[in-house]
Simulated scan of single mutants.
Amino acid sequence: MLDDELLSTHLQELRRGTVVLACLLILKQPNYGYALLDLLGRRGFAVDANTLYPLLRRLEKQELLTSDWNTEESRPRKFYRTSDRGVALADTLSRGWDELDTAFRTLKGES
């Protein structure tokens, strides 16, 4: 039987790389950080704000995301959107994910 700490550690490792792909896919429609944080959580990608915001900045620096400030509301918000380069990467990563899923199903004897 696995203890909770061991299980939590390995689940965190498993999910870590998936958050980048999830952000690239979700942000094909513009959204701001806090809303993205909530949406990721509701879709099963629980991520801490202290992880998400540096990730968004890194993806923007890598030109995988673009951003614009919306100052029309009382509180200015930075909206992120997946760039063309980010869409291409998301497509490639999605194909890689599908290949891994097939490989895991084969290992489990499900194919």
Rank of each mutant, 00 (worst) to 15 (best):
Y53L: 12
D48R: 06
R16M: 05
G86A: 00
D101I: 12
K108R: 11
G33L: 12
M1F: 13
T92P: 01
R75P: 06
R77T: 02
P30C: 04
D91N: 13
D101E: 10
V19N: 06
T66P: 11
D68N: 12
Y80D: 04
Y80V: 04
F79T: 01
Q12L: 07
T51Y: 15
Q62A: 15
L21R: 05
E99H: 03
L93Q: 02
Y34C: 09
L24T: 03
I26A: 07
L37K: 04
D38L: 14
L37H: 08
L25R: 08
E72C: 05
D91L: 11
L52P: 03
F45R: 01
L2T: 13
P54H: 01
D91T: 14
T102Q: 14
A88K: 03
R43Q: 01
L55N: 04
V87P: 07
L6N: 12
A46N: 05
R95G: 03
L6I: 10
L25Q: 09
R105G: 08
L7N: 12
K78W: 11
G44E: 00
L37Q: 05
R77S: 03
E72L: 07
R16K: 12
A46S: 07
W97Q: 09
N50G: 15
G86Q: 01
G44V: 00
N31H: 09
E60D: 07
R57G: 08
A22F: 02
G109L: 03
D38A: 14
A88H: 03
H10E: 09
K61Y: 07
L27A: 01
S74F: 14
K28A: 08
S8E: 12
E13M: 11
A88V: 02
A103I: 05
R15F: 15
E63K: 11
Q29E: 15
D38Q: 14
L24K: 04
R43I: 02
L37A: 03
E5I: 12
F104L: 15
N31L: 09
M1Y: 11
T9E: 13
E60S: 08
L52R: 02
G17T: 05
L24E: 04
Y34I: 15
T92N: 07
G109I: 02
I26L: 09
L25G: 03
A22Y: 01
E13S: 11
L59T: 02
Y32K: 07
P30E: 06
L11M: 13
E72M: 05
N31R: 09
S83M: 03
L21Q: 06
A35P: 04
K61W: 07
T82H: 06
A88F: 02
T18C: 13
T18M: 15
